[in-house]
Amino acid sequence: MKKKNTNLTRREFIKDLFHKLLLLLLGSFVVSRFFKSAAAGYVWQIDPKKCVKCGRCATACVLTPSAVKCVHAFEICGYCNLCFGYFQPGALRLTADAENQLCPTGALQRRFVEDPFFEYTINEALCIGCGKCVKGCNLFGNGSLYLQVRHDRCKHCNECSIARVCAGRAFVRTPARKATFKNA
């Protein structure tokens, strides 16, 4: 009986030792990381300079339709008469008829401003993030159309499933506080 008792206390002693050891380990981890922590979480953003408009944003996102949408930076739009983001290459007539439009869902819409200029806006409800317009705009225009992760739609997955397949490796983890725009 006596032997059993000492056996028990030995086990308890070792358990207690490990308990303290693990507590120390966890504590030192938290403390050491705490002082180097990034204040807020990260969000995923696309670097437009690296984006090759491969079209995977439209299909690889866990959401359908994708959380990536086309965004128009109006400040650098050239208001081209022949908008290569809007018109199908070799379009017969420069009208808003579907066969002349590049966008497969009609999400890039134009509004008459004054002759001969139109203002191009993206209807986000329709945009699927395929990047066809972005490609056209970047090839021949100013590149005012670009693809970006829309943070109101994005689920902020720990590992972005588009980032994993992004051909240009353009997806970047960005601190959330820095992910807002100056003109927002």
Partner: peptide
Amino acid sequence: FETQYEIPTPAHPHPR
């Protein structure tokens, strides 16, 4: 532009 057209600013939704 000759008319009173103002270049719009795109809306950028904030993250959480």
